[in-house]
Simulated scan of single mutants.
Amino acid sequence: MDRLVSIIVPVFNVEVFIKNCLESIIEQTYKKIEIIVVDDGSTDSSGIICQEFAVKDSRIKVYKKNNGGLMSAWVYGLNKAKGEYIAFVDGDD
């Protein structure tokens, strides 16, 4: 398979978990992915951590928006996705 997979990661105040979450996604064996991180108005350092990952891996795109809840973050990410397939991973997974 050589198709782009978009992985949407909604993030809201998950600074304790987001590093492990993003590392897990990056380390997958299938590499043709885009990782769309939607910072849904975090007030902790989640957004900063995500930006640091984006600097290291060009497949990661970080978008910041005002808090609108999980569904709002999913829809936002879907509108940015370019992949033929879509996956959702919660920031605290």
Results as ranks from 00 to 15, higher is better:
M1V: 06
D2F: 13
D2P: 13
R3W: 05
R3C: 08
R3I: 12
R3H: 09
L4P: 11
V5H: 07
V5Y: 04
I8D: 03
I8C: 09
I8M: 02
V9C: 04
V9I: 05
V9D: 02
V9W: 04
P10E: 07
P10M: 01
N13L: 10
N13V: 07
V14M: 02
E15V: 10
V16T: 14
V16R: 15
V16H: 13
V16Y: 12
F17S: 08
I18P: 00
K19M: 09
K19E: 14
K19P: 03
N20L: 09
N20C: 04
C21S: 10
C21Q: 05
L22N: 11
L22C: 01
E23H: 01
E23K: 01
E23C: 03
I25A: 13
I26R: 07
E27Q: 10
T29F: 12
T29N: 13
K31E: 06
K31I: 06
K31W: 05
K31F: 05
K32L: 13
K32V: 12
I33V: 15
E34S: 15
E34R: 15
E34C: 15
E34Y: 09
I35C: 12
I36V: 10
V37L: 11
V37M: 10
V38H: 02
D39Y: 06
D39P: 00
D40L: 07
D40V: 07
G41N: 11
T43D: 14
T43K: 14
S45N: 08
S45Y: 00
S45H: 03
I48S: 12
I49K: 02
I49V: 07
C50E: 00
C50W: 04
C50F: 04
E52M: 08
E52W: 04
F53E: 02
A54K: 09
A54M: 03
V55Q: 02
K56W: 01
K56F: 02
K56H: 07
R59Y: 07
R59D: 02
R59G: 13
R59Q: 13
K61E: 13
V62Y: 02
V62T: 09
Y63M: 00
Y63F: 12
K64E: 11
K64R: 13
K65T: 13
N66F: 09
N66V: 15
N67Y: 14
G68K: 03
G68Y: 04
G69I: 11
G69Y: 08
L70W: 11
L70G: 01
M71F: 11
M71D: 02
M71L: 15
W74L: 11
W74V: 11
W74A: 04
V75G: 02
V75W: 07
Y76V: 08
G77I: 07
G77T: 13
G77A: 11
L78G: 12
N79S: 10
K80W: 03
K80P: 00
A81Q: 03
K82N: 15
K82G: 10
K82Y: 10
G83T: 09
G83S: 01
E84T: 14
E84F: 02
Y85G: 05
Y85D: 12
Y85F: 09
A87E: 15
A87H: 15
A87K: 15
A87Y: 14
A87Q: 15
V89W: 00
V89C: 11
D90K: 01
G91F: 00
G91A: 01
G91T: 05
D92M: 06
D93N: 14
